[in-house]
Simulated scan of single mutants.
Amino acid sequence: MKRPTKRRHHTVPKFYLDRFANGRHQLIRIELPGTKRNTLNVKDATVHTDFYLVEAEDGTWTDKVEDSLSEVEGAAATAIRTLIEDKPWPIPHQVREAIAGWTALQYLRTPAVRQAGSQILDMAVKLAIAAGGREEMRRHLEGIEGRPVTNAELDKMWEAMTAFDEYTLDAHPNAHIQTMSDLLPGTTRLFYSRAWNLVQFERKALITTDTPVVLLSGPGQDPSMPIGLATAGGVLVPLDRRVALIMGEVGVDDELTHGSAVIAQSLNQRLAHEARRYVFHNPEDSPLQGIVLPEPRTQEVETDDPGSFLREEPQE
Rank of each mutant, 00 (worst) to 15 (best):
S118M: 05
H172Y: 05
A56Q: 15
W158D: 02
G59A: 08
L105Q: 09
A232F: 00
I28G: 02
R138Q: 12
A98S: 13
T103D: 04
R270N: 07
H273L: 04
G186K: 13
S260V: 00
H93R: 14
L183K: 10
Q299D: 11
V214S: 05
F309N: 08
E71Q: 14
D240K: 01
K156L: 13
V250K: 12
P296T: 10
M247I: 12
E57A: 13
R139V: 04
T110E: 01
V235N: 01
G34S: 09
M123T: 05
F309E: 13
G143E: 12
W61G: 00
P287L: 13
P226S: 05
T298H: 14
V252P: 01
R277H: 11
L310Q: 11
R96Q: 04
N282P: 02
S308W: 03
P90K: 03
E312G: 12
P314H: 13
Q265I: 02
P283I: 12
F164Q: 05
A261Y: 08
I99N: 02
G59P: 08
N151K: 12
L127P: 00
W102K: 10
G117A: 07
A75F: 03
T103M: 14
T298R: 15
V47A: 05
L27R: 03
R7A: 14
V213E: 06
E66M: 10
P212V: 07
I263F: 00
L40T: 15
N197Y: 03
A175G: 00
E159I: 11
E97G: 00
P173E: 00
P148N: 15
P92F: 06
D170P: 00
M161D: 08
D222H: 11
V250G: 00
E274W: 01
Y278M: 07
V199M: 10
P226N: 02
N38D: 14
W89D: 08
G146N: 11
D58F: 05
P226K: 03
L229G: 12
K64N: 10
G259H: 13
Y192I: 01
F20G: 01
G220T: 07
R81S: 15
V125Y: 11
K156S: 12
A205I: 01
L190N: 09
S68V: 06
R276C: 12
K126P: 02
L229A: 12
L245C: 15
P173C: 02
R134W: 13
H140F: 14
D58T: 04
H9I: 05
A131T: 07
P13H: 09
L215W: 06
P185G: 09
V301A: 04
V237A: 11
G74P: 06
L239G: 09
H10I: 10
V12I: 15
V213W: 01
D165G: 15
R311Q: 15
Q200Y: 02
K87M: 06
W61C: 05
E153C: 09
N282G: 06
D155L: 10
S68Y: 06
T209E: 08
Y16S: 10
